[in-house]
């Protein structure tokens, strides 16, 4: 899929660090990518690779202290979000960029009704009366497929099932027709059949509203279903970026390849899974050079001393490896 127009969001060399007692955690280190209108970008990685921190950095919601965005740019519609005032940021959050989270059980405030929480967002960003806001809220709940929306809008979150709560979250996020949605593992805590429902819903709404979606997950199956382009993150870096077909057909970076060979498949029998040796590195003292080199089967002397370049193997297929396209 090609997106001719200017990117909606462009991250340039974003760096976010956490200043803890044990040392500086370099959670996001030099991350750049582009996201266009109507595009779904999948951000894949294991826990602790910095994918959630990247998304929080875009909205400037990194908990400060100890976290701090120490460098780079977040260009959204031609403005650098990092330069904006807190007040302007508040107008963007929930209005132009919305976010949904992993655990629908904890991401809604348990002591307020769903109505209160959805209407809060509408009234905050739009100049509407209480009644209009309520109608809009009910309409949103119907849109995300909650039965009996008019009655259920008065319920408290704990009365909804996990899947329904995630729908409520989506309704809330979409209440101001955002240009971009950040979805942080929105289906991880859900059952498979419910996950299918929610994925379907996100995909439909994204197409209807022509939204840009930054979809964060660790599940390679979900990415294959929903994403147009994929960025693979490892230890704070984006190690590979390309479109969704290439990543599964011709993965280039050793980490992407290893990751793909290590997952059990439902559609075919694999006699033995591939294994990435070792564990995810500690980001206070990350490995020198390429951060993947201690676990990489192809690592050489060069990998442990020099930071690899971003190599554009093919048009818009980047690999963060010294030996890109040669392995």
């Amino acid at each position: 899929m090609t997106f001719a127009e200017e990117p909606l969001l462009e991250l340039e060399h974003l760096k976010t660090q956490f200043f803890t007692e044990d040392g500086v955690v370099k959670a996001v280190d030099d991350v750049s990518f582009k996201l266009h209108r109507g595009e779904v970008l999948g951000l894949v990685g294991e826990s602790g690779c910095g994918k959630t921190i990247t998304s929080l950095s875009i909205l400037k919601l990194v908990p400060t202290p100890p976290g701090k965005i120490v460098g780079g740019k977040v260009m959204f519609n031609g403005e650098d979000l990092l330069e904006l005032s807190e007040e302007r940021m508040r107008q963007i959050r929930g209005n132009e960029i919305s976010m949904i989270f992993q655990d629908p059980m904890t991401s809604l405030n348990p002591v307020f009704t769903v109505k209160n929480q959805i209407l809060e967002n509408i009234k905050l960003h739009q100049d509407v009366s209480e009644d209009e806001a309520l109608e809009k809220g009910i309409e949103l709940m119907q849109m995300v497929g909650i039965p009996e929306a008019r009655r259920r809008i008065n319920d408290y979150p704990h009365l909804f099932s996990g899947g329904m709560r995630q729908r409520v979250m989506i309704a809330m996020a979409l209440s101001c027709n955002p240009q971009m949605l950040i979805a942080d593992e929105p289906t991880t805590a859900l059952d498979v059949t419910i996950q299918a429902q929610v994925l379907d819903l996100i995909k439909d709404l994204q197409e209807d509203l022509n939204m840009a979606v930054l979809y964060i997950t660790h599940n390679l199956g979900v990415i294959a279903e929903i994403a147009d382009n994929v960025a693979v993150m490892y230890a704070g870096n984006i190690v590979e970026y390309t479109d969704v077909n290439t990543i599964y057909d011709k993965p280039d970076h050793p980490y992407t390849r290893a990751l793909l060979s290590s997952i059990p498949r439902m559609d075919k029998k694999i006699s033995r899974l591939g294994v990435i040796r070792g564990t995810v590195p500690n980001l206070i003292t990350p490995p020198s050079g390429c951060r993947f080199h201690p676990r990489c089967p192809y690592a050489t002397e060069k990998c442990s001393t020099q930071v690899p370049p971003y190599v554009e193997i093919e048009p818009s297929h980047f690999s963060f490896c010294h030996y890109a396209a040669t392995l």
Binding site: N109, N121, H125
Partner: peptide, 24 residues
């Protein structure tokens, strides 16, 4: 998480604290 949700909606810090956090 719901505090993060409230912040991501663009609520002013005052409301995040006194509405969403305080009652809990």
């Amino acid at each position: 998480d719901y505090i993060l949700t409230a912040r991501s909606k663009g609520l002013p810090e005052r409301l995040v604290i006194y509405k969403h956090a305080l009652r809990n």
